[in-house]
Simulated scan of single mutants.
Amino acid sequence: MMTGTAAWADRLLQSFAQAGYVRAEPPILQPAEPFLDLSGEDIRKSLYLTTDANGEELCLRPDLTIPVARDYLRSPEAGQSAGFSYLGAVFRYRGGRPSEFLQAGVESFGRQDRAAADAEMLALALEAIAAVGIADVEIRTGDVALFIALIDALGLYPVWRRRLIKDFNRKITLEQDLERLAQASLATRNEYEGVLAALAGSDRKAALALVTDMMSIAGATAVGGRTVAEIADRFLEQSTLKGGALPRDALNVLKRFLSISGAPNEAITQLRSLSSDAKLDIGAAIDQLEARVGFMVERGIDIKKVRFATAFGRGLDYYTGFEFELHRKGNGAEPLVAGGRYDGLLSQLGAPSPIPAVGFSIWIEALAQANGSSIAARGRVS
C-alpha cells in the first residue's frame, strides 16, 4: 500500500477505535452460500469462486459486512451489543476496473436504541471522511421501513406486497410495477378475475398447492427445465399481477409517497399529512424517522445539509430501515460512504433470534479521488 493510503488507514481506524469499535479481520476465503442466498444468483458472475475438497463452494470475500457478521455470531458476544470496524481488501469482478480493492467500515450489532444507533452511524461516517480531509459532502438518506409500513397499511394482495418491496431498491423496476398497476386498474374485467383475486388474497402456500394440483391433474409435466411447482408459482404470480390487484386510490397514495423529498423535517410534515389524508396507520414508522432526526441533531449533524427522499434505496434486499450515502459534491453516481440498517441479516445467517444491526462501508477508491489523490486500488493493509 502506498504511504498516503497507509496514513488514511491509520486515521480511519483511529477514528473508529476512539468511538469504541474493535477492529475485525475476517478471513479472505468465505463460504459462498451466504452471499448467494442474500444477494441472489445474479451476484455469482461477480464472485471469485472455488470449491474445497469436501465440495463446499467458497469465494474471495466480495464485501466485509457478511464476514464480520458471521464472526460476531460465532463469538461469545453474539446477541449482545457489540461494535466492529474493518479495513481490508475485497474481491469482485467490476468490468474493466480492478477486481481487488479496499473497503473500510463499521458494523454495530445488538443495540435496541435503533434511532440513536442510526444517527451514530451517520455521524461516524461524516467524522471518518473528515479525518482524511473531506468535509463538504452531499448527505442522502431514506428509510425502507417507511415504504414497508405504507405497503402494509394499504392492505395489498400478498403478491403485490412481495413484488413492490422486492423492487423498492430497483427504481426502474418499481416504476414498471407502478405502470403495470395503473394499466391493470384500467383493464376490463375478465371471466376469471374473481378467481385470481381470491387466490391472490389467500394463503400463498395454499394457493400454490391448489394451482400445482390442478396442473398435475391436467397432466402438466416439466417444461424448459422447470418443475410443475415452479411453473405453478410463476403462473400464480403473473396471473395475479394481470388481474389488477391494486385499487386506483392505493396507486395514487404510492405515487404521492414516492414523490416526497427534501429536508427531513419537511418530509416528516408531508408524511404526516399523507397519513392523515389517506387514513393510513404509518405513525410508528414516521415517529422512528423523527426520533432519528432528533439524534442526528444531538450528534451535531447539520440537518439543513441532509436530504431525505422516500424513494431513496441502495439496491440491496437486506436493508430494513435507515439507508444513507455520502457523495462528493457534484458526483451523482459514486458514493464515498454507503450504509444503513439490516435487522434481518443476522437471522438469515443463523441467529436463533432477531438481532438489530446497522453499519456502513467506505469506498477507498472514491475517497482517494475525492481527496485529489492518486492511489492504487490494489493493496494490502498491514
Rank of each mutant, 00 (worst) to 15 (best):
221 T>S: 06
7 A>S: 09
149 A>P: 05
189 R>D: 11
354 P>L: 04
205 K>V: 11
53 A>C: 09
315 G>M: 08
335 P>T: 02
95 G>T: 12
52 D>H: 07
290 E>T: 05
331 N>W: 14
259 S>C: 13
154 L>N: 05
181 L>A: 07
93 Y>K: 06
265 N>D: 10
372 G>K: 06
43 I>F: 09
226 R>H: 08
316 L>K: 11
68 V>L: 07
66 I>E: 03
276 S>C: 01
255 K>F: 14
307 R>K: 14
136 D>W: 08
349 L>T: 08
2 M>W: 10
23 R>K: 14
325 E>I: 05
152 D>N: 05
126 L>R: 08
215 M>R: 10
101 F>G: 07
269 T>D: 14
242 K>N: 10
215 M>I: 01
154 L>T: 11
31 P>W: 11
65 T>H: 02
29 L>Q: 01
331 N>D: 15
187 A>V: 07
9 A>Q: 10
265 N>Q: 13
125 A>M: 00
248 R>S: 13
103 Q>K: 10
146 L>K: 09
280 L>Y: 00
233 D>I: 03
46 S>N: 12
256 R>Y: 00
261 S>T: 14
233 D>N: 08
98 P>C: 04
37 D>F: 09
302 D>M: 11
51 T>S: 08
42 D>T: 02
371 N>P: 06
106 V>K: 05
50 T>W: 02
168 F>T: 01
125 A>F: 04
334 E>I: 12
26 P>I: 05
286 I>Y: 06
240 T>L: 01
252 N>M: 11
127 E>N: 14
345 L>E: 06
300 G>M: 08
231 I>K: 13
14 Q>S: 06
227 T>R: 09
227 T>K: 10
161 R>N: 14
341 R>D: 07
4 G>E: 14
357 A>Q: 09
368 A>T: 08
378 R>K: 08
285 A>T: 10
308 F>A: 03
342 Y>P: 08
89 A>W: 01
214 M>A: 15
95 G>L: 05
287 D>W: 01
5 T>A: 15
252 N>C: 02
306 V>G: 04
213 D>W: 06
46 S>W: 02
348 Q>A: 08
219 G>Y: 10
126 L>V: 00
360 F>V: 11
110 G>R: 01
214 M>N: 13
321 G>L: 05
178 L>C: 13
40 G>I: 11
323 E>Y: 05
190 N>V: 07
310 T>L: 12
286 I>L: 01
270 Q>K: 13
87 L>A: 03
253 V>N: 00
29 L>D: 08
185 S>E: 06
305 K>A: 15
239 S>E: 13
332 G>N: 13
91 F>H: 14
262 G>I: 04
338 A>T: 09
83 G>C: 09
58 L>K: 06
125 A>S: 14
58 L>D: 00
97 R>D: 11
169 N>G: 12
204 R>S: 05
2 M>V: 04
30 Q>M: 07
169 N>E: 11
24 A>L: 12
164 L>M: 07
273 S>L: 13
331 N>A: 15
70 R>C: 12
286 I>Q: 03
73 L>V: 06
276 S>Q: 07
123 A>S: 15
21 Y>H: 05
49 L>K: 11
70 R>P: 03
360 F>M: 09
59 C>G: 00
370 A>G: 15
